[in-house]
Design a protein around this nucleic acid. Sequence first.
DNA 1: CCTTGACCTTCCCGTGACTGGAACCCCTAT
DNA 2: ATAGGGGTTCCAGTCACGGGAAGGTCAAGG
Lengths: 128, 128
Amino acid sequence: MNISEVARRTDLPPKTIRYYEEIGLIRPARDTNGYRAFADGDVHKLAFLGRARALGFSIEDCRTLLALYEDDARASADVKRVAQDHLDRIEEKLAQLRSMRDTLTHLVHECAGDNRPDCPILQDLARD
Amino acid sequence: MNISEVARRTDLPPKTIRYYEEIGLIRPARDTNGYRAFADGDVHKLAFLGRARALGFSIEDCRTLLALYEDDARASADVKRVAQDHLDRIEEKLAQLRSMRDTLTHLVHECAGDNRPDCPILQDLARD
DNA sequence: CCTTGACCTTCCCGTGACTGGAACCCCTAT
DNA sequence: ATAGGGGTTCCAGTCACGGGAAGGTCAAGG
């Protein structure tokens, strides 16, 4: 299976697939002509990676999760810890973004948005 | 005023202040010895930038906002549009993160987190 | 006068996770 | 023979800095 077919099946760009090989997440075989020859297992791994990335896991987290996935002797506690840590970081990010949003919503609401120069947004940014 | 004093006052790292000069956000004068000599106006601008960055505005947004701030003939509508666009992107990001969080919360809750290998998190990532 | 240590300077590399583009090879059909 | 649509590698750029090296400057103490 060539890369564009795998890209279609996994909904990952070919560039991303090459990148994942470059950093050692997958190791597709090669045809005699140098083309990557993907097996079903490669496609499966890529789909796994795509879903993990869609959940916001970092590449290093993905590497860990993939290793756990392939380790029959894993403890689910190890998987759970990775997910929980990630979840904690997401909660932090959410709190940060909510705070930004609240401030911005307030400021945008206060601003007349007309052709006069007076602007509470700039006033806030320039406050002493 | 030297850079470390400005860093203390604006709560920005010296590296960041140098970077902001490099990309043309500020233009501090120079002493004969080559040291940056910051005026109050520079400090004010840096504080402005620090607050804009804390609200999540990109550097390019900051550049625009600073230009508007210094333009007496600005229209508040221009400021408002920058802020509203940024707010829209934050709302998108929030929705995305909430979605990740909801999925992850569910999965983490389902996972026993013990020393057995069975794990609904991995099952979900590996689903066909 | 010399040294010490805390400043300051520039320059270059690394980050994360790709994306774009150039230059080139391969395969099939006409 | 050529055209096109694959594929390949490699290099540069993204964003907003941070780390660290190599070296100049300044004030205080011996």
